[in-house]
Design a protein around this nucleic acid. Structure first.
Lengths: 240, 240, 240, 240
DNA sequence: TATGAATGAGGGTTCATTCAT
DNA sequence: CATGAATGAACCCTCATTCAT
């Protein structure tokens, strides 16, 4: 029964309109920012008259808020679902980075610019909402970070906030670059590299003396031992 | 040349006017962003009539461009002068981080928000200029990075751009935090920590095989050795 | 006639709808005036959709007209029935005053304000109707006045219109006061006083020469007599 | 020196504009009421662009407030100056009635309608102002009324407010009539009659027994006594 | 040169009214 | 018949920009 899923039959059309409006609004706000966007253009792209915009939304600001909320909801839901299932902080980092880059780039970067742009200058009522959304978006990853931090899986000599800033800051700049330069490198490669880079900063520093000894020495030592062990074990069989 | 004299005093007045206007414009644009800023408010703060603004600048946009250029010039000149004199990449990183944080925070964060905000959404003519300024601002540090890259003082397995993004991205996010949270931690401490963090990511990685080592690998290795030793010890007694 | 039956029940529903709409419209128009009233609010209060309003009335204006007409009909019918049965002009005056005050105040003053307010500024189509209603409303009382006028029960040296204006004008101002001041004095007392006051103006004046007398003249005369008597008494003793 | 009276040279043009705008606004608001009046029409009648309206007034409401205030100021100032100089309450009544009728009728009745109409339904910010102006306008006459009341020159068995309502109410209805009927009777005659009528209601009522005796009888008595006295006085001189 | 004054070109928003379902 | 939905037509207001003085 395909009609079974008709939860709200009357609002089918309505929902379509809302969706069309939100889509149009997202594109317009993305391209022009909140101030330069006009309800007229949004209406035009949604294929309705300007007055219809106000049938579905109290005003321009509220429409923009909805656009931002929806977008954040999308990208937040995914993180909330996926991150807790990943086994370790490195996988989580990897996931976050890829998801972030993919999402923002796929979106044509508009929302990113919108959120970054209007987050500050837009009057109250927008900034608040954006800040709140941002907080919820980062929360899942912050939880991972906190856990790893508590377990000592990442360095403990830095405030968590700083680590978070490093991660998201790096990502955002990479994005910015991609957007600006218009020559987008393959995202997967970039994500991989970014993860490696960030992890270098995140992972617990080696003990103080390790710096002197250097891992290379340790590695050589390991090789020595390994080799010695093999020889030992190879020699034993003839023992009996 | 009698007119030369007349030109100079006039220029003096003129320069004063221009400076007053630029100062006023900077404060207004910083607080309100490009769109919400009004020429009326700028004129008022500069102590001149609104029409005078247009005597000195072709329009609102050009005024804003000048404001942004001036600001970038200030902060860029400092970097251009200081960075080449510093001995190594780490000192340079440290300088860049401190300078960036200090500049942006000292400015009341307004310009930061302006540049970040209007960089995308402002119509052409502003975005271009901002992008160009940004490029010039980052250039000195990029040069350092490139040199260190060539010399192998920093890791060479990453594109330079990525390293740059990491540095500036992290800084910007830290700034954003400082602005948003209103509880600004001591800048010097933050700068210090940030440098350490970033350097962890920047410094040359251990040799390739060290990657297979890592602490986890070392731990496993320790287990291996321990197990091997136990076996050895268990086998040896009956051996004789 | 089978359709007659069908017509009646339909009319019943229809009448209910119309009544609900008229009631809602009256309350809305009363509170907000014609211009500020919205069909949306009227529909909401009537418990129907906005479109239904236009099923029963050609438009906002016509709905308002109906509201005003109905209201005037109510208060007019009463006067038309009661006034002719009262024995004399004084009783009639008393009835008119009490009825007017009671009606308007009981109504929450809304209709009063509506009629007074929109009577002028509302476009044609409303003003006309209001004027006509007003005329019909005042007619019964005007008839009484005319009769009394002809019989000489009220003064005959004034145009009837003026007498009517005095009566209604006074009442309206009293109402206005009551509405504005929010401290409404007991209506019955006010009505009583107002009747007395108005009657003083309405009743036939004294003969022409009485005007030259007046209380002041009488007082002066009393003084004259008193003085004269004193002089007489002073002169008399030595007279013998 | 005719230029001496140039108090504010620069704002000469400005004042003209303001005056033109106020005049235009007065006419538009008068004809259409506050809601139906449009800034576009006001601007057109003032011969300026619509934007200019907002150069001189913060908004439509404020413009209307100014119009109302100015109008009330005009008519109030006159009363405040003239009334206190008149010798008795009857002269004052006469003045008030004539002034009121003349003013309102001369104005084309528009302001009257505006004030009456918007006094109730217009949102706050207009109603307040109107109420306050009304109060100040009536104050001078109320003072006269109060004085006469205290001196017993008018009846003391009624609240002052009621007397005031009678006066203004009657006037307003007369005005209303004049406006509605479009056949304006000579104002002076009407004013005269209205005064007589109102005075009948205002003057102190005769003592209770006077109703039985009738003024005519008193007058006859007065004549009798006067005659008797004259005879007495004429006869005395020969006394010595 | 500096400015008071004026304005053209929109922008967001409202609402009575229409119409397909 | 009732209504959800859509909209055309204004309306108030803003502001960068121009220009005569």
């Amino acid at each position: 029964m395909p009609t079974l899923q008709r939860t709200t039959p009357r609002s089918a059309k309505s929902r379509q309109r809302v969706d069309a409006l939100l889509a149009a609004a997202r594109s317009v706000f993305s391209e022009l920012g909140f101030q330069r966007a006009t309800t007229a253009l949004i209406a035009e792209r949604a294929g309705v008259s300007e007055a219809t915009v106000f049938t579905y939304f109290p005003g321009k600001r509220e429409l923009c808020v909805q656009v931002i909320k929806d977008w954040y909801d999308e990208i937040t839901r995914d993180l909330e679902a996926a991150l807790p299932r990943l086994p370790d902080i490195q996988s989580q980092l990897s996931y976050v980075v890829r998801a972030h880059l993919l999402t923002l780039l796929a979106d044509g970067s508009g929302m990113c610019a919108l959120v970054l742009g209007e987050g500050r200058t837009a009057g109250p009522g927008l900034s608040d909402v954006i800040a709140e959304c941002q907080r919820r978006y980062v929360a899942p990853w912050m939880a991972c970070l906190a856990q790893a931090h508590a377990r000592g899986e990442i360095r403990q000599d830095m405030p968590l906030r700083l680590l978070r800033d490093l991660v998201y800051g790096a990502m955002e700049h990479v994005l910015w670059d991609s957007i600006t330069d218009r020559k987008r490198p393959p995202i997967d490669d970039t994500a991989q590299q970014l993860c490696t880079l960030i992890w270098s900063a995140l992972m617990p520093p080696l003990p103080a003396d390790a710096h002197h000894t250097s891992l290379a020495a340790l590695a050589r030592f390991k090789d020595d031992v390994t080799e010695a062990l093999r020889r030992l074990e190879q020699r034993d069989p003839p023992c009996p």
